[in-house]
Computed example of a mutant assay.
Amino acid sequence: MHTFKLCSRSLTDCPGTSSQTAGKSAACAGCPNQSACATAPKGPDPDLAVIAARMRGIKHKILVLSGKGGVGKSTFSAQLAFALASKGKEVGLLDIDICGPSIPKMLGLEGQEIHQSNLGWSPVYVEDNLAVMSIGFMLPNPDDAVIWRGPRKNGLIKQFLKDVNWGELDYLIVDAPPGTSDEHITIAQCLQASSPADGAVIVSTPQV
């Protein structure tokens, strides 16, 4: 496992961790991540081709984001999914808030389990045309804390994208955790492999 530290250098100078020159270019000199980048695996991520194939059946992808928690982001995600489903659209709701999954509780789906088939993981259905996936379905106890480092969270998000059998969807709503960190970078890069998200909804509240 490679641990990366905050780098003060401009992102425009960084060759990127997948580059063959990662950790070796002149721009890497003095960067705290130089050693980690130099020894990390290089080249394109093989999972991206699998994700792209799975995402071909999804027409539109919408991210729901927020800069801070408690602003109603998950509530909005759920309501948007229900609204689109009520119009007869095929909708998927993906909860990638790994450490604070609230979608199962919000939709009354606690206790539901994910089932495996030869087509992949089967999401939990609220309605015939509204499918839901969350780590909350994988926890033995819904009150269990998920204390994971970035690479493990990123790995699960990739699994949600490449292993879940969403079928043909009109919309995939992605409920992201608050802030801007690993989960957001991972979902954006993975969706980029097939086609970028159609857009994002930023949920916020006025500050006093």
Rank of each mutant, 00 (worst) to 15 (best):
S102I: 00
Y125K: 15
I157Q: 04
E168M: 10
L84P: 03
I62R: 08
S19W: 01
A81G: 04
D182A: 14
L6D: 11
L156S: 09
W121I: 09
S25L: 03
A29N: 11
M55V: 09
C28D: 06
T3R: 14
G150P: 11
M133Y: 00
D198E: 13
I157S: 06
S117C: 05
A49V: 10
T186E: 15
K42W: 03
A26L: 11
I173L: 04
K24R: 14
A53T: 10
A29T: 12
P151W: 05
G67S: 08
P104L: 01
A22D: 03
V91P: 07
S10R: 12
H184T: 01
S204D: 08
G120C: 12
Q34D: 09
K5T: 12
G16M: 06
P177D: 01
S181R: 02
A53C: 04
Q79Y: 07
R9Y: 04
A197G: 09
S35N: 13
R9C: 10
V64A: 07
G23R: 08
A85H: 01
W148S: 02
A36D: 07
A131C: 11
H2E: 09
A40W: 05
G136T: 04
S35A: 15
A197I: 02
S204T: 14
N165T: 07
L161Y: 03
A197S: 13
L48K: 15
L119Q: 15
Q34M: 13
P46W: 08
C28E: 09
V203N: 06
S204M: 09
F4R: 02
C99T: 12
V208H: 12
G167W: 02
N141F: 04
A145D: 11
A83Q: 09
D97V: 00
F82W: 14
H2R: 15
A36Y: 05
L48V: 10
S195H: 13
S66N: 09
P140Y: 08
I62V: 13
S194E: 12
G23W: 03
M55F: 08
S134H: 06
W166C: 02
F76A: 09
L93H: 02
P123Y: 03
L65Q: 14
N33Y: 07
G136D: 06
T17P: 14
H2T: 10
D182K: 07
S8C: 08
E183N: 05
